[in-house]
Amino acid sequence: MPGQIDWIEIPAADTAKARAFYGGLFGWGSAEFGGNYHVIDHGPAGAIAPASVGFTHPRVYFGTEDLDASVKRLHELGGRGEEVEAVPGVGRIAHCHDDQGTPFSLFEPATRS
């Protein structure tokens, strides 16, 4: 559904410590997806991932049915977005900022045949 939160990513300098912390706090488990990226089990749809420059706070992904149209509308409303990226087998994403500079991301799921 457009505008619904579909995924979150929690950045961590030490993903093992972060997984232990959130596991202890909320009972979350995790499964490594690759590259030290850990998908959350028994919690929200999301992952614990290595922090990096520009990725130091949780990242929220809002769903959209048409990523290209959403990015176009984002620009019309004064926001800014990075290049659209394909995530093989998952869909497409774009990291964005609203018109006040607040970061968020957009997600369009892959079509299933």
Rank of each mutant, 00 (worst) to 15 (best):
G27S: 08
W28N: 03
W28C: 01
W28A: 04
G29T: 03
G29P: 00
G29A: 00
G29L: 01
G29M: 04
G29R: 05
S30Y: 09
S30I: 05
S30K: 03
S30L: 02
E32T: 05
E32A: 07
F33E: 10
G34C: 01
G34W: 00
G35K: 10
G35Q: 07
G35F: 09
N36G: 13
Y37P: 01
Y37K: 04
Y37F: 14
H38K: 05
H38I: 03
H38L: 08
V39A: 14
V39F: 12
I40R: 01
D41R: 11
D41I: 05
D41M: 10
H42M: 06
H42V: 01
H42D: 11
G43V: 12
G43K: 05
P44E: 08
A45W: 00
G46A: 08
G46F: 01
G46K: 03
A47Q: 04
I48V: 15
P50Q: 04
S52A: 11
V53L: 13
V53F: 10
G54Y: 14
G54L: 15
F55R: 08
F55I: 02
F55T: 02
T56E: 15
H57L: 12
H57Q: 12
P58K: 09
P58F: 11
R59I: 12
R59P: 13
R59G: 12
V60C: 06
V60S: 02
Y61L: 13
Y61M: 09
F62W: 06
F62Y: 14
G63D: 06
T64K: 06
E65T: 08
E65K: 10
D66E: 13
D66N: 15
D66W: 07
L67W: 05
L67C: 03
D68Y: 06
D68T: 12
A69C: 04
V71A: 09
K72A: 15
K72P: 13
R73L: 14
R73S: 12
R73I: 08
L74S: 01
E76H: 02
E76A: 15
E76C: 01
G78A: 04
G78E: 01
G78D: 10
G78W: 06
G78I: 02
G78R: 02
G79V: 03
G79S: 04
R80M: 14
R80Y: 13
R80W: 04
R80C: 11
R80N: 13
G81D: 08
G81W: 06
G81S: 13
E82D: 15
E82W: 07
E83Y: 04
E83S: 07
V84I: 15
E85L: 11
V87C: 03
V87K: 09
P88H: 12
G89H: 04
